[in-house]
């Protein structure tokens, strides 16, 4: 699994602190809803029919036991004891209170997770075959490439204000379990002649 570098750690912590200040300003009335909405959408917070919803990214669907326990702890402490895993490898908490969300983001940062770019018109969580690295038909594990795309697209200034949301999926297998064809960009690994050892390429 990818481990956060010091830069990643500082970036995510910085975003949590920034959002904490934005929520405080919204709650004390110094930000209007129109001013606050873009800020919450940059941090995965929706206001839905019955409550707020927080969508947390699980990059290319890879989750450690420690992260899974942190998600469960968040559900117990700040939500109703459950979350909803989505088809795009996110988890959604359906009952968070606005004032608790900075603490939830802090708990996510403790285990190298966040809700950045899980909403809004930007490049969303990069998804991969859920059987990555365990599939018999796989040419190569797609997740290192997914990680490169994630790093490239996270906080990329050119892609923060797209006309609409934008989604990328990648698979290392001929069987399209990552549903790449339904994405804005679908990447599929193919075995290419001429590469050393007939290695896979994109």
């Amino acid at each position: 699994m990818y481990d956060y570098t010091d830069f990643d750690e500082a970036f995510v912590r910085g975003r949590v602190a920034q959002f904490r200040a934005q929520v405080a300003r919204r709650l004390d009335g110094s930000l209007s809803e129109d001013e606050f909405r873009p800020f919450r959408l940059m941090n995965g917070v929706y206001l839905q029919l019955h409550a707020y919803m927080l969508r947390v990214a699980i990059p290319y669907g890879t989750l450690s036991a420690r992260q899974m326990r942190a998600l469960a702890d968040i559900a117990d402490r700040w939500d109703k004891g459950y979350g909803h895993f989505t088809t795009r490898q996110n988890i959604q908490f359906n009952w968070p209170k606005l004032g608790d969300i900075p603490d939830i983001l802090g708990a996510l940062a403790d285990v190298g997770m966040h809700a950045i770019q899980t909403s809004g018109n930007t490049i969303r969580n990069v998804t991969a075959d859920h059987f990555a690295a365990a599939a018999a038909d796989e040419i190569e594990d797609p997740r290192p490439v997914a990680e490169l795309i994630r790093q490239w697209s996270t906080d990329h200034p050119e892609f923060q204000f797209l006309p609409r949301k934008f989604k990328i999926a990648i698979t290392g297998s001929p069987n399209d379990r990552a549903v790449t064809r339904a994405h804005d960009i679908g990447l599929r690994m193919v075995r290419a002649k001429g590469l050393p050892g007939d290695r896979g390429g994109l």
């Binding site: 809803e33 019955h50 409550a51 707020y52 009952w95 209170k97 606005l98």
Partner: peptide, 10 residues
Amino acid sequence: GNDLRQGDVV
């Protein structure tokens, strides 16, 4: 509308 803090329908 919705409650600012809880998100509840009001």
